[in-house]
Design a protein around this nucleic acid. Sequence first.
DNA 1: CGTATTAATGAGAAGGATTATCAATTGCAA
DNA 2: TTGCAATTGATAATCCTTCTCATTAATACG
Lengths: 167, 167
Amino acid sequence: MAAHISLLDPGRLFGLRYIAMKDVTCPDSPLADLCRQRGLKLTGQRRTIAFVLSDSDDHPDVEELYRRAVAVDPRISIATVYRTVRLFEENGILQRRDFGGGRARYEVADGEHSDHYHLIDASTGKVIEFENAELNALLDSIVREKGYDLVTTRLSIVGRRKAGGED
Amino acid sequence: MAAHISLLDPGRLFGLRYIAMKDVTCPDSPLADLCRQRGLKLTGQRRTIAFVLSDSDDHPDVEELYRRAVAVDPRISIATVYRTVRLFEENGILQRRDFGGGRARYEVADGEHSDHYHLIDASTGKVIEFENAELNALLDSIVREKGYDLVTTRLSIVGRRKAGGED
DNA sequence: CGTATTAATGAGAAGGATTATCAATTGCAA
DNA sequence: TTGCAATTGATAATCCTTCTCATTAATACG
Ligand SMILES: [Mn+2]
Ligand SMILES: [Mn+2]
Ligand SMILES: [Zn+2]
Ligand SMILES: [Zn+2]
């Protein structure tokens, strides 16, 4: 039916505009590659969400991810964002966080950035990440001493900026 | 209308059964006293919930509290359990915990039992409480070093029982 | 003690976050 | 290119929690 069309240069046929709206989404990203490596089907929506996540260095919730994804490719629904975020978490690509407030938040499960904790500013809600080897060791020893292997540490500290403390 | 009846001994009038179902709920409890101390109206339902909480040493969710409360006094609704649990938390009588699973869990905000942490058995869901002064100090110093005062520490560790580890 | 006032309750509707359903679409292996 | 299983979009359903509002009950005051 459209066999003869595919032999032509799409850019010269009906003009770039139509082709662009139909096929171009966003470039591949480190997370898109991870997606392939895990044998997950790389759909346009997943490529977009992977792109948005690779581009984020904060802790967005699903609504926020949806906003960012729609800005890249409007052909996406929030249901797919929920599904993708769950899929990525089950495959170790994303980490789910709970900072209170009732919505899950996500960040890339980066290798070296992996074992970090979160301090939350009580007034602004700003999230400050930190690593601490001593804390890692102490938690591990506490758990081991009770006859357990540490599986997951869920820690978030709420703090209030000190009066005289300029950062 | 019932004025002359109230002058009689209720236990001798219609028999204990009727009077008991109408008026007797449960004895006062340490938490019921706290309720009074804070100037909160001490309703029958609140006395019952306070009694159930004073009698618990675990981390029940609202459904579980409702079950325990109904066993003491059937004249209670789950809406009231939700309301009371929130009221008690706002007044520092209860602490809300989040062990994952989507439902809030509660425990009495006991003075000396206050600064403890939770280790959750990954297989059974069993909650193991522990205190650790070194952990207290380390968390405090981490937060202070970043220019903050520690407000709340939300920590729960998920662990798996070690293979050769008999408790 | 009886009454008035005001807050609390019960039942169920509403809300917010997340998951499930299902017909239509699409990635991808052959 | 085709075929098919997996994915998607739209929206209903679910789960936990809060809200609404008419009824009931606790407390202060006489
Ligand atoms: Mn939570
Ligand atoms: Mn609803
Ligand atoms: Zn982080
Ligand atoms: Zn506890």
